[in-house]
Design a protein around this nucleic acid. Structure first.
Lengths: 332, 332
DNA sequence: AGTCATAATGGCATCGTTTTCGGTCAATTG
DNA sequence: CAATTGACCGAAAACGATGCCATTATGACT
């Protein structure tokens, strides 16, 4: 910065003003300073400026995994909003419980980020309290917490709509493959099931729910159980696309045609869902990230504005895995 | 920090020494300081310490997209290595050419990161020179640049091995679906094709290469072209899993059984490949990220050590989309 | 012409650490 | 017992920016 000042023959204060777009600088001086900074390819050190302003120019995202398409896409949306506001994105992946614990103990974003956004971390009450010690605005996605800024997907409406779609097609024996709440009951798990249950009950049908493990395997096992029932369902709704894909695999192997004999609906709009023509519920992860980013920016601008809830809608994507049931009974 | 010092009745220097694990502090004092810091849940400000040490404690990753499983997984591996070394991960997603240009002009990591790692950015000569102005060690993945630290996948060996596998199964009419080098020829594209070509030629067969666009669509179109040939191939190698999945979709629609009539091999070990039982070439993205991280750490420790190349191997994952060709001619 | 507001600029303390240097004190040595 | 040596610790100067306050130019108005 001193170099830039010397080169243009002004003081450091003026250079600082120019580079911060602060008022009180003559236009021609402003321009000369800009040019000099450009020539020297000089950029301000966030480190130093943050030291005095108290702002770091960074926002931290905390998430459990990075592989799944969902998280990458949320980060994309978040990153775009942040970079537009001139903020950098810090990413912390907390895979194991151990990583989680040490992170919550050390709280690296403390004084190193202006806001923290958690992505589907499903924190416990105790963990919330520990996070509060970071002392910066927090935004949560994937869970709904009273009194805190949250972005959450309307899971209930998603499965409700999907189930109604199946009902409208004329199905009546509609089963649901879900997971047991291993992690003390993830919210989305509960919500998705409740949407399905509600749609079934309101239409006078009895819910049919099998709970297996998460992932493909759960889908395979779940479908296995359904296919070995006395009177198999004509349609199946899965808690996630991964489960649906596992179920689809079972169906293929068993030679049961989809959607002719059984209609199948997933949830997530997984990358593979498009390839396999699976009807699914899209939750627009890009948008979730963007909304979370906006909430963080808002909290930065207006510290009192905490506690806003944003509920993002879901969208049923009709593809080739759903159809009206055949009038004749029996599979194949 | 002052609070911690007051609480333990020592000077700031001593607190600093303890928190940096610097020598010259009596064990019992060290312990008392540690306890006080813990109680106050105090952590040093990277901002301030970086100001004087010149280190930021952050490493920047630059990548074109975040959605694909590949990038998320590379980031995971990278993040693990970095967090073990106590470094934070900064992520810049440069989707559009415009974002790329403004980034290269402003170079945000300048003085804000200790090292920069690019992920499959396929930079031009000019862009390299611009990046050099950042003034920190650079590590490149996904491309091979003489004289610079790189991590690259042995693409050639991957397709070479995959093709040989098909040849060993008894196939002779093996086609390859690739992409046109849109971006001025991505290195991996060229390498993958050359591995296939080499395997074909060394075994006395003639290569059969169709070039389409990237993504599912390319695969669908490519397979369409192959299926409409006078004498269709009995095996197809795709440049990427996405292409392979598109091709698979075409095959399903056309009623061509896989692997009975046509064997199919992809490249990437995409999430969906496992679900669909697609034989593919895995490039261990986790490992790529980890290696890149290690290279960056090495460069940080030993600034002269730039220019190391790490070539990560690929691994053929045999699944259910490849089999020996049927003796009888004709599809279906 | 003199006064006064206003805009533009420079000087300086400051943010929270690290680092260097010098000082104190106990232990060891001749 | 005096001198020397270390180990340990505190004081103070950086680091690179910002923000407040004082100062100086520039017109505008009585």
């Amino acid at each position: 910065m001193r170099d830039v000042a010397r080169r243009t023959g002004v003081s450091l204060s003026t250079v600082s003003r120019v580079l911060r777009d602060a008022p009180g600088v003559a236009p021609h001086v402003r321009e000369r300073v800009r040019a000099a900074a450009e020539e020297l390819s000089y950029v301000v050190s966030r480190n130093a400026s943050g030291l005095v302003t108290g702002r770091t120019g960074r926002v931290a995202a905390v998430l459990p995994r990075l592989g799944p398409w969902y998280f990458g896409t949320v980060l994309s949306g978040l990153g775009d909003v942040l970079s537009e506001a001139g903020l950098d994105l810090l990413v912390y992946r907390l895979g194991s419980q151990e990583a989680r614990d040490t992170w919550l103990r050390d709280l690296p974003p403390r004084r190193n980020a202006d806001a923290v956004i958690t992505l589907s971390m499903d924190l416990t009450e105790d963990e919330y309290r520990r996070m509060d010690r970071i002392g910066v605005p927090l935004v949560f996605t994937g869970q709904r917490v009273p009194g805190r800024s949250c972005v959450h997907v309307d899971n209930r409406a998603g499965t409700l709509g999907a189930t109604r779609h199946l009902l409208n097609l004329g199905h009546s024996r509609i089963a649901y493959i879900g997971t047991h709440g291993e992690h003390g009951g993830k919210e989305s798990v509960v919500e998705r099931l409740s949407g399905y249950t509600e749609a079934m009950i309101e239409s006078g049908h009895t819910p049919w729910h099998v709970a297996k493990s998460a992932g493909h395997r759960g889908g395979e096992h779940g479908m296995g159980e359904l296919l070995s029932a006395a009177d198999p369902p004509t349609a199946v709704l899965a808690e996630t696309d991964e489960i649906a894909l596992g179920a689809l695999r079972s169906l293929r192997r068993a030679g049961v045609p989809v959607p002719e004999a059984i209609s199948l609906v997933g949830f997530d709009n997984h990358e593979a869902a498009a390839v396999l023509d699976l009807t699914t519920v899209d939750q627009e992860p890009r948008r979730i990230g963007a909304e979370a980013g906006r909430l963080a920016l808002e909290a930065l601008r207006e510290p009192a504005s905490t506690g806003t809830h944003v509920c993002t809608p879901t969208q049923l994507l009709l593809r080739r895995s759903t159809a009206a049931p055949r009038s004749t009974r029996g599979l194949s």
